[in-house]
């Protein structure tokens, strides 16, 4: 089981991995807060500042989104942000550079990406680039373990985290198969639907986490829909990590200017970080 062999990799990733974030959180008896922003949104420089701001405000680990032209699992907020990043010319090379700057903060830094950009870059070459940047690993929303042999091998060779998703519709057998393939954590996509902040957290999340826990010791993170500290506290009561994306993106998308956007982002991150520390 991957959780019991975190250091088996021959070439450990240069940066910190999710295992480090979970160790810290466990010592403090709380959940991990994982924050997402698309690389290059609203521009390359600001995206680095934004992610650094999130870390300073208490976000434990960062998901750097690699913007892609056809993001089928993303709702309008992240689509708009990714499109803006692409229009600004942000491509794989810039994403890896952003990863290295964010990883330099000391927070485990994952890349979240649809599969074709990795395929086009070359799976081995992408994995090498991630190691060189100090990245922790990859979250792959449209790659399931049964199609991921190349990536699994490349990640195993380098000790990179490999995070696959389970869904409320997944059969128990697929939850087990997916959890077995994960290192770092298992991503429980808690609503049937695309990314986006929701006013209530999903009633599907708890049962999905329970089903996942039943078959793995690997930590379970819950994503899709969390937008404030109260929701974070609720999710933190049953999950190992709380994942927040659209709510952060919205801070920058809605802001009249960069500085006020970063301020809103800091406030949101602070609220969410307080949430994962609240005793449920």
């Amino acid at each position: 089981m991957s959780a019991t062999t975190p250091s088996a990799a021959p070439t450990a990733a240069a940066g910190r991995t999710m295992a480090d974030a979970f160790a810290t959180a466990r010592a403090e008896d709380r959940a991990v807060l994982l924050g997402f922003l698309p690389a290059g949104f609203p521009d390359v420089e600001t995206s680095v500042r934004a992610m650094t701001t999130m870390v300073e405000a208490g976000v434990d680990a960062i998901e750097v989104g690699l913007p892609y032209t056809d993001p089928v699992l993303d709702g309008p907020v992240i689509q708009a942000a990714a499109q803006q990043a692409l229009d600004g010319g942000c491509r794989t090379a810039e994403v890896l550079r952003i990863v290295s700057e964010v990883a330099a903060t000391g927070a485990p830094t994952l890349v979240m990406t649809y599969w074709n950009p990795v395929l086009a870059h070359g799976v081995e070459r992408f994995a090498d680039g991630l190691v060189a940047a100090g990245g922790a690993g990859l979250i792959t929303p449209d790659l399931t373990p049964d199609h991921g042999a190349d990536w699994i091998a490349a990640a195993d060779d380098r000790g990179l985290d490999k995070v696959f998703l389970v869904a409320p519709s997944s059969t128990d057998a697929r939850v087990a198969e997916t959890a077995r393939a994960c290192r770092g954590f298992v991503y429980a996509a808690a609503v049937m639907g695309v990314t986006g902040a929701r006013t209530t957290t999903s009633s599907l999340a708890g049962p999905l986490v329970a089903r996942t826990r039943a078959v793995t010791d690997t930590p379970v993170g819950v994503g899709l829909g969390v937008s404030n500290g109260d929701q974070a506290a609720e999710v933190a009561s049953y999950a190992d990590a709380v994942i927040v994306g659209s709510a952060f993106v919205r801070c920058l998308l809605d802001a009249p200017d960069t500085e006020s956007g970063l301020a809103a982002l800091r406030d949101a991150a602070t609220d969410l970080a307080e949430g994962v520390r609240r005793r449920a």
């Binding site: 699992l73 449209d142 998703l165 519709s169 059969t171 697929r174 996509a189």
Partner: peptide, 12 residues
């Protein structure tokens, strides 16, 4: 070919 899709759609 194959099935390069989000896990949420696999069951469907």
């Amino acid at each position: 070919g194959g099935r390069w899709i989000p896990e949420a759609l696999v069951a469907a």
